[in-house]
Amino acid sequence: NKASVVANQLIPINTALTLIMMKAEVVTPMGIPAEEIPKLVGMQVNRAVPLGTTLMPDMVKNYE
């Protein structure tokens, strides 16, 4: 099973992601793959992301 990106803390709306906000975890359903973490740094979330939430592509602005 591949790990996904999971919020390590509450991430407020429009916050630019940093490494300490994210962790890799095997979850179902899968979200953004953990190997994308370096690419996510500096990208903004378009909603508040609660602690423990799996990051999905539609939660990150301009994620492709």
Rank of each mutant, 00 (worst) to 15 (best):
E25K: 06
R47F: 14
I37K: 07
K39P: 05
M22G: 00
M30G: 10
L10H: 07
M43N: 04
E35S: 10
K2N: 15
A16V: 08
Q9G: 05
Q44C: 02
M22K: 00
V45H: 00
N62L: 11
S4V: 03
M59K: 02
P57Q: 12
Q9V: 09
M21L: 10
V41F: 03
N1Q: 15
A16Q: 12
M43H: 11
T18S: 11
A48H: 15
L19D: 08
V41M: 13
N14L: 05
V41Y: 06
M56Y: 06
E64N: 07
N62Y: 12
I13D: 10
L10T: 14
K23N: 14
E64R: 02
V45R: 00
V26G: 03
V26Q: 15
A7W: 00
L17W: 01
V49C: 03
A24D: 05
L10A: 10
Q44N: 13
I37H: 03
K23E: 08
T54R: 07
Y63E: 04
N1Y: 14
M30A: 12
K61P: 13
M59E: 03
T18K: 12
L55I: 12
E25V: 13
T18P: 01
E25N: 15
A3K: 06
G52S: 12
I32G: 00
M30K: 11
E64H: 11
A34P: 07
K39Y: 11
L40N: 00
N8V: 11
P57W: 09
T54A: 06
N62F: 07
L17F: 04
Q44A: 09
R47M: 08
P38L: 09
T15A: 06
E35C: 02
P50Y: 07
P57A: 08
P38K: 12
E64P: 14
T54K: 05
L10N: 13
A16C: 03
N62R: 08
M22A: 02
G52E: 13
T15M: 13
A34W: 10
A7L: 03
I11W: 01
K61E: 10
L17Y: 00
D58K: 14
P12G: 07
E36W: 15
Y63F: 11
L19Q: 15
P33G: 14
P29D: 07
A24P: 13
G42N: 12
D58V: 06
V60R: 00
G31S: 04
P12S: 11
A3H: 04
V60T: 02
T18Q: 05
K61S: 14
R47P: 02
Q44L: 14
P38D: 14
K2H: 13
I11R: 00
I11K: 00
L55C: 02
K39W: 08
I20R: 08
K2D: 09
L17D: 00
P29L: 14
M22V: 08
V60C: 02
I37W: 02
V45I: 13
N14G: 14
P57H: 10
E35N: 10
A24I: 14
L51E: 15
M21E: 02
V27G: 08
